[in-house]
């Protein structure tokens, strides 16, 4: 219909230009900036994967970091404890996260919306506690450091390119899913689960599949983290990080596709610079969240889009 091929082309050209810029960018950046960018790509992928469940599915996915950390630990353990080729680790991480999402999802999607959120926080914390306490296997609190990342992607710059490529590929797949029949119906489930059921949608199954998709991409982000950072620690599965991702989605705009990516960039940069002056990062995060709730509940990108639409089409503001 009116979503004409023209707008599609326009979007594609913008996207290509964006990617091209990021491809030449490392030539002009310091080593630290390159690392920071790679971290933003990783975190951006993580936030986008959460938004698949939260923004498009309307589910209270309050402990998304678990799938991220689980993917990261899977990668790290494969690389340090087995002699298997590196790519095996990178394939297994998303699979492991998908499996974990399936397990947690099977229990959670049967529950009401609030119970879903509460029990997911609890189950996620169980996974965290196990990794935290299983010293002989995971090195507990110490984490695992100096992980032997495959040579091809070990240096700062090549890690940057690896993260960029993976991010772009994953974003493309996720965009495709959002625009697929599944994605359309998933958004219907978000807006009105009861009505979705009345048009013949198996709501719980949809939510479960949505959770698995989100968890899988979080797992991919987790293994990217290993590439970028070279280490893992239990904080990757801690609840505070889940809140941080949630704030990224909210900050960027959780009803937009690219919003969470923006949000991730802002939060990662903020954390880096706030970290120079103070150790009280969480209080800053809490205040950011409060400000968002009161003044910008649609997020930065959401706000811009609403303004843009209402300028182009004044009728939009009615009702």
């Amino acid at each position: 219909m009116s979503a004409s091929p023209k707008t599609d082309w326009k979007k594609l050209i913008w996207a290509l230009m964006g990617v091209a810029v990021f491809f030449v960018l490392p030539n002009f950046l310091s080593r630290f900036s390159i690392y920071l960018m790679a971290l933003i790509f990783t975190t951006g992928l993580l936030a986008t994967s959460l938004n698949m469940v939260l923004g498009y599915g309307g589910m209270y996915q309050f402990h998304h970091a678990v799938f991220y950390g689980f993917g990261a630990y899977t990668t790290a353990l494969f690389l340090t404890k087995t002699g298997l080729p590196g790519w095996v680790a990178f394939v297994c991480a998303p699979l492991a996260s998908a499996l974990l999402s399936l397990l947690i999802g099977l229990i959670c999607v049967r529950l009401s919306k609030l119970y879903f959120g509460m029990f997911q926080i609890s189950l996620g914390s169980l996974v965290w506690a196990i990794i935290y306490r299983w010293y002989s296997f995971t090195h507990g609190d110490d984490g695992i450091h100096g992980i032997p990342v495959p040579d091809l992607i070990a240096s700062g710059k090549s890690a940057y390119y690896f993260a960029l490529i993976v991010l772009v590929v994953c974003l493309m797949i996720m965009y495709r899913i959002v625009e697929s029949p599944f994605g359309r119906i998933f958004q219907g489930v978000r807006d009105n689960p009861e009505r979705s059921e009345a048009v013949g949608v198996n709501v719980r199954k949809h939510q479960l599949v949505g959770m698995i998709i989100g968890g899988t991409f979080a797992g991919v982000a987790g293994s990217l983290f290993v590439v970028v950072e070279g280490s893992v620690f239990p904080d990757l599965l801690f609840w505070t990080l889940s809140l941080e991702i949630l704030i990224m989605c909210l900050l960027g705009g959780w009803f937009t596709f690219l919003g969470p990516l923006f949000g991730a960039a802002i939060i990662v940069l903020l954390r880096t610079f706030v970290g120079i002056y103070t150790e009280y990062w969480t209080i800053v995060l809490g205040i950011v969240l409060m400000l968002l709730i009161f003044f910008l509940p649609e997020g930065v990108l959401g706000y811009i889009i609403t303004r843009y639409r209402s300028r182009r089409n004044p009728k939009f503001q009615e009702g």
Partner: peptide, 28 residues
């Protein structure tokens, strides 16, 4: 109390914000 009229999720997120703030306030 200013949020009672708003979306339910906003109230919930607000308690999240307080968890973060209180955590660091205790440390301070």
């Amino acid at each position: 109390c200013r949020l009672y009229e708003r979306e339910h999720l906003m109230l919930l997120l607000f308690t999240f914000a307080f968890t973060l703030v209180f955590g660091d306030l205790v440390k301070l």
